[in-house]
Simulated scan of single mutants.
Amino acid sequence: MPEPTPVLPEVLAQIHALPTSSRPLIICDVDEVILHMIAHLEDYLNARNLRFLNHQYRLTGNIGPHDTDTPLPADDVKRHLHTFFDEVSHQQEIVPGAETALKELSTDWDIVLLTNLPGGHNKPAREKLLSGLGVPFPVVTNSGPKGGAVAALSAQRAQPVVFIDDSPTNHSSVNASLPSSVQVQFIADARFRANMRQEDHIDLLTGDWQETANFIGDILR
């Protein structure tokens, strides 16, 4: 089992700037949960004669040219991800039902959006897009595994705490840092979701926001 992850100082500063509250908390990822990412990234890659080599949940080692099965070096993948976020993050499309479900849940829950952004430099564009799509909740930008940030966001909070994310790495990190949290693994893309094995610490594996809202609503009831 992974060790608990420390929270980065720059992330902790964002968390300390949030209003204090004792309400139950939903900590929700953005990419491939609220906003489509895989579909947009696939379009970006196709335009550069690149593709996903398979539908396994990773990027490094899983992106390469159309005419070969040889993956790009890790540095090239990182460079493409930076370019992708610079070019596309201000126009990503919303996953159907996300805004309605989150609005309903916000009646009883505080909601914080915890998103990994390279360098965090396009946070304002992301906040503007989300707000315009009806998802006006606080955005905290992180890098790396999210366990430390989730534990810090949850400090002094009443239980329960729900963590929604697509990444198995982030879920493992949260399970190590805050095992009392309820973990929802949400993957909008059906191909990648079908290849995901549900781990024991995952309470719900889904790609449907109505199912997610019903599941979370039942927690308080």
Rank of each mutant, 00 (worst) to 15 (best):
A158P: 01
G132P: 03
P179T: 03
L130S: 01
V182T: 15
S181N: 08
Q156N: 15
G120D: 05
A125N: 14
G119L: 03
T141C: 14
S131F: 03
H121D: 14
P118Y: 06
S173N: 02
K123P: 03
S181G: 07
G134K: 13
L117F: 06
G144I: 01
V112P: 01
G120C: 05
T141K: 11
I164E: 10
G119C: 04
S180F: 05
L113G: 00
Q159E: 15
P160K: 05
A152N: 05
L178W: 01
N116C: 07
T115G: 04
T169R: 15
K128A: 14
L113H: 00
G120M: 05
A151P: 02
S172R: 15
I111Y: 02
V112A: 04
L133I: 06
P179Q: 08
A151F: 04
P179C: 08
A152D: 07
A176H: 04
T169I: 15
P168A: 12
R157I: 09
V162L: 09
F137E: 13
P118E: 12
S154M: 10
Q183K: 15
G144K: 01
Q159P: 10
S180M: 12
S180L: 12
A151E: 11
R157M: 06
G132F: 08
V150A: 06
A176N: 05
A176Y: 02
L117K: 10
V135Q: 11
A176F: 05
N170L: 06
V184N: 05
L153W: 09
I111V: 09
G132S: 07
P179I: 04
V182G: 04
P160M: 10
G148K: 00
S172D: 15
T141F: 06
P138N: 12
S173P: 00
P138D: 13
P124I: 13
P160A: 07
V161K: 09
N175G: 04
P138R: 13
V162Y: 09
P136Y: 10
K128R: 15
V135I: 14
N122W: 11
L129I: 04
S180H: 13
T115N: 07
N175A: 10
I164H: 10
P160I: 09
V140S: 06
Q156W: 10
S181P: 07
G120L: 02
T141P: 05
P118L: 09
L113W: 00
V112W: 02
G148T: 00
N175H: 15
S172A: 15
G119W: 07
P168W: 06
Q156A: 13
N142D: 13
L117V: 10
S177L: 01
P168G: 12
S154I: 10
S177E: 03
G144W: 00
I164Q: 09
T141H: 12
A155P: 01
P145V: 03
I111E: 02
L114G: 00
P179H: 08
S181F: 08
P145Q: 02
L178M: 03
T115C: 02
V112I: 12
T141L: 07
P138E: 14
L129G: 03
P124Q: 14
T169A: 13
V162S: 11
S180C: 09
L133R: 14
I164Y: 06
